[in-house]
Amino acid sequence: MRRVVIWNVMTLDGYFEGTAPWDLSFHNLVWGEELEAFSLQQGEELSTLLFGRKTYEGMAAYWTKETGAIADMMNNSEKAVVSRTLKDVAWNNSRLLEGDVVEAVERLKREPGKDIFVFGSAELVDTLLKNRLVDEYRLGIAPVVLGAGNPLFKASGDQLVMKLLKTTPLKTGGVVLHYQPQYAA
């Protein structure tokens, strides 16, 4: 069975986005040669990118205009999209997942191939975590306290312990953390 791996960059105070949609300027604080190499390595590990609608639309708008190795990875990878409102998806190699989100992702995990990666998509990730569908969580920590924004982890009232698998400090002052969720029995 394929694994679901989450990749997000967040601030020290827990935001994955500033106060405005797509305010990701703090990503520049961690971006550099090391994170670029890490991004390309992740591209080798995946066969499907999984997105919620908002992230899919934003990523498609951005990456279809970009060039380079990461743009090639993003544009050429298979993409699966979870949405209640989209009727079709036009970005190269994209498909809509139909039906219940949890059931659709469970079916996706059973398909042959390498890992499924989720970039961004905080609402989708929240659903996946609550339903024990996340196998690994990778966080890039930007060395900044933003003070306000959209929190990466949504308030749920439930505790989820994460087992640290690996840490990688970056020359930019950021850190990449690899965690495995420890779902309660």
Score class of each variant (00 low, 15 high):
Glu66His: 14
Glu66Gln: 15
Gly68Tyr: 06
Gly68Cys: 06
Ala69Thr: 01
Ile70Asn: 03
Ile70Tyr: 08
Ile70Ala: 07
Met73Leu: 14
Met73Thr: 02
Met74Thr: 06
Asn75Trp: 07
Asn76Met: 05
Ser77Val: 13
Ser77Tyr: 03
Ser77Asp: 01
Glu78His: 13
Glu78Ala: 13
Ala80His: 05
Ala80Asn: 08
Val82Glu: 00
Val82Lys: 08
Ser83His: 00
Arg84Lys: 14
Arg84Asp: 04
Arg84Pro: 00
Leu86His: 02
Leu86Ala: 04
Leu86Arg: 08
Val89Pro: 06
Ala90Ser: 13
Asn92His: 11
Asn93Arg: 15
Ser94Pro: 11
Ser94Trp: 01
Arg95Thr: 05
Leu96Trp: 13
Glu98Tyr: 11
Gly99Phe: 15
Val102Glu: 01
Val102His: 07
Glu103Arg: 14
Val105Asp: 01
Val105Thr: 04
Glu106Phe: 14
Arg107Ile: 10
Lys109Thr: 09
Arg110Phe: 02
Arg110Tyr: 01
Glu111Gln: 14
Glu111Thr: 11
Glu111Ile: 09
Lys114Phe: 05
Asp115Met: 01
Asp115Ala: 14
Ile116Pro: 00
Phe117Cys: 01
Phe117Ser: 02
Gly120Ile: 03
Glu123Leu: 15
Leu124Asp: 00
Leu129Glu: 10
Leu129Asn: 03
Lys130Cys: 09
Lys130Glu: 14
Asn131Phe: 10
Leu133Ile: 10
Val134Gly: 10
Asp135Asn: 14
Leu139Glu: 00
Ile141Cys: 08
Ala142Arg: 02
Gly147Val: 09
Gly147Thr: 02
Ala148His: 12
Pro151Trp: 08
Phe153Pro: 04
Lys154Glu: 06
Ala155Phe: 11
Ala155Tyr: 11
Ser156Pro: 02
Gly157Ile: 08
Gly157Glu: 04
Gly157His: 07
Gln159His: 10
Leu160Gly: 09
Leu160Asp: 00
Lys163Val: 03
Lys163Ala: 12
Leu164Phe: 03
Leu164Tyr: 04
Leu164Gln: 07
Leu165Asn: 08
Lys166Glu: 12
Thr167Leu: 15
Thr168Asp: 04
Thr172Arg: 02
Gly173Arg: 04
Gly173His: 05
Val175Lys: 11
Val176Asn: 02
Val176Ile: 15
Leu177Phe: 13
Leu177Arg: 09
His178Lys: 05
Tyr179Gln: 01
Tyr179Trp: 07
Gln180Cys: 08
